[in-house]
Amino acid sequence: MRTIRHVAVNVFKECVRDKVLYNLVAFASLLIAVSYLLGQLTAGQDVKIVKDLGLAAIAIFGLLISVFIGIGLVWKEVERRSIYGLLSKPIRRSEFIIGKYAGLALTLFVNVAVMTVVFYAVLAYLNTQFPEVVRTAWPAPATDPGMLRAIVLIFVELLLVTAIALFFSTFSSPFLSAALTCGLWVIGHFNADLRNFEAVVESRPAALLARGLYYILPNFAAFDIKNQVVHALPVPAGYVVTTALYGCVYIALLITGAVAIFSRRDFK
């Protein structure tokens, strides 16, 4: 456990030194610039747009970090041979993989947390820009804490994407890993279409295959409740919990697979 934490902290340090957190500056600038400009372009919908944009930006910035750092986590150590020195130390390969994953998870957590704070700060400022009578017409207050449910699921989704990237990077090149990870992400968002596939096709094997993929491929669409929280529609707590649980079980599966593959690998 101590070893895992130690590796994780080093990953976090690497991310900080490699200026990954600069994306937070980009995020904050984007949100502030947009909320300033919106007043010029639209009438009255500013708060909704900032909410939409903020949640989407948290998801996309996080996704970029997950994929592009996730695929390099293990690959970089193997390619640059820094893993030679590390694995001769008292550390198991499983601890190495889990530690690497935990480190990126920590980086993502800090990122998402800071982005959330900036997000609410911009909304709180916008809130002061509207008279009481306009505010009462909104479906939800500007700084609606209910949006945290969407952010929690975004975070779990990012953890799942990271696990996929890590899994692929234990045995393939970064380019291929990135392509496969992004591919799964896109498919995972069209998951419901796989479910409806059988209504469209005649062939039974094709329908069964689609059904099987629907159950096996990661269902990223389930994690997306951005629209619901922005309109303050009901999202049961049970839904958030089961979806998060689904993500965690899937992550455990991917990490187990990554460890199994990585443990048998030769570093030529």
């Binding site: 269902n219 389930a222 619901q228 309109h231």
Partner: peptide, 13 residues
């Protein structure tokens, strides 16, 4: 995933 489907997918939006 089956549970997710059983409950009717994501909440209405």
């Amino acid at each position: 995933q089956a549970l997710h489907e059983h409950r009717g997918g994501p909440p209405a939006s």
